[in-house]
C-alpha cells in the first residue's frame, strides 16, 4: 500500500499525486516509470515518475484520466492509498552533454518529459522546450518546464495561447531561423511522436522517443509491450521505454495501442455509471497471503 501524500489538479482531467514509495524514490533515474494497481481488482498500468524526493521517500506521478483505471485513480484523495506501486522500471534516459537539446512535449507527454528536460539541463545542455496542446486549458506544467528550459515555446492547435499550430511547425520555424539542434527528445501522443520524428529525420536531428505501449508486468515476462525498432522486436518495459525515434515502427505501435478499444470503452462506461452512483466495481475476493 502506498499512501497519497498530496494531490493537486493541474488541469482538466490531469492530476499530480505525491506518493510514498521510498525504494522507488531513492533508486529512480529520469526516464523510468512505475506500474501501479489502484485497487485489489485493478489493472496494472504504467506511469512515468515525474519527480522524486529521496529524502521524504516520495515520488510524483502526473496522470491524465483517460479510461477506467486512471479515472478510478482520480477519485482518490490525500491520505488514500494506492494498492501497489512497483518500480523504477525501464532503462533510464541516456544523459550526456549533447550541446543543444530540443525537448518536445505533447499533451500529457509533458509529464514524462519534465524529468528528462530537467536532467538534460543538469547535464549542462542548452535546453529548448516546445510544448504542444490542443487548447490553452490542456497545457500542463508550463511553469515547471520554463524553470528547467533555456527557451520555451508553446503551441496550441487553436491559437488560444502561444503560437497557433503544431509542434512540428514550431520545430521547422526554429531550425529555419538557424538554431542548431544536437539532440531531440519527443514524448506525447503516438501520432504526434510519429510526425515529429519524421520531421527530425528529414532535418537530420538525432531523436529519441519514449514509447507507451500497453504493459502488464514491466519485467520482460509477458511480451505484451513489444515494439518493432530497426526491424527488431524489443520489449519496451526492459529495452526501453526510450528508443531511437527514427527506427520505431510507429504504425504498428499505434495500432497495438488500440487492441482493447472495445473493452476499454465498455469499462469506462461502466465506471462512469458506477462511479457516479458511488458503487465502484468489485471483483471476486482473493485471498491475499498476508497472515
Amino acid at each position: 500500500m502506498n499512501t497519497i501524500r498530496k494531490r493537486e489538479e493541474l488541469g482538466p482531467n490531469v492530476t499530480r499525486y505525491v506518493i510514498d514509495a521510498p525504494l522507488v524514490a531513492t533508486h529512480r533515474k529520469p526516464g523510468q516509470f512505475v506500474i501501479v494497481r489502484v485497487s485489489d481488482h485493478g489493472e496494472r498500468i504504467p506511469l512515468t515518475i515525474a519527480d522524486a524526493d529521496p529524502e521524504l521517500g516520495t515520488i510524483s506521478l502526473i496522470v491524465q484520466s483517460v479510461g477506467k483505471t486512471t479515472r478510478e485513480m482520480a477519485m482518490l484523495r490525500s491520505g488514500d492509498a494506492i494498492h501497489d506501486v512497483v518500480g523504477p522500471l525501464g532503462r533510464p534516459t541516456h544523459l550526456q552533454q549533447f550541446g543543444t537539446v530540443l525537448c518536445v512535449g505533447g499533451g500529457i507527454g509533458t509529464a514524462p518529459l519534465y524529468p528528462i528536460a530537467k536532467a538534460m539541463k543538469e547535464a549542462h545542455n542548452h535546453v529548448i522546450t516546445i510544448l504542444g496542446a490542443r487548447t490553452r486549458d490542456l497545457l500542463i506544467l508550463e511553469d515547471d518546464m520554463r524553470r528547467v528550459s533555456d527557451e520555451l515555446i508553446v503551441t496550441t492547435d487553436d491559437g488560444s495561447y502561444g503560437t497557433k499550430g503544431l509542434v512540428t511547425d514550431a520545430i521547422r520555424a526554429l531550425v529555419g531561423g538557424g538554431t542548431h539542434i544536437d539532440q531531440a527528445v519527443v514524448i506525447g501522443p503516438p501520432l504526434m511522436m510519429k510526425f515529429t520524428s519524421l520531421l527530425t529525420k528529414e532535418l537530420g536531428i538525432p531523436t529519441m522517443a519514449s514509447l507507451n505501449p500497453i504493459m502488464i508486468d514491466g519485467t520482460g515476462m509477458c511480451g505484451g509491450c513489444r515494439v518493432t525498432v530497426g526491424g527488431e522486436m524489443k520489449f519496451a518495459c526492459v529495452d526501453g521505454p526510450e528508443f531511437d525515434a527514427h527506427k520505431v515502427d510507429w504504425d504498428s505501435m499505434i495500432r497495438r495501442l488500440g487492441t482493447y478499444r472495445t473493452e476499454e470503452k465498455t469499462a469506462a462506461e461502466r465506471c462512469d455509471h458506477e462511479c457516479r452512483i458511488g458503487l465502484g466495481t468489485r471483483g471476486p475476493e482473493w485471498i491475499l497471503p498476508t497472515d
Binding site: E43, K68, I216, C222, G223, E264, T281, P284
Partner: peptide
Amino acid sequence: NEYLTRANLMHAYDENSDTP
C-alpha cells in the same frame, strides 16, 4: 505468458476484472 497472465494473475476471465 501474456495470455495466461491476463487470465490468471489479473483474473481477466472474470467479467468484473479491470484487465481486458
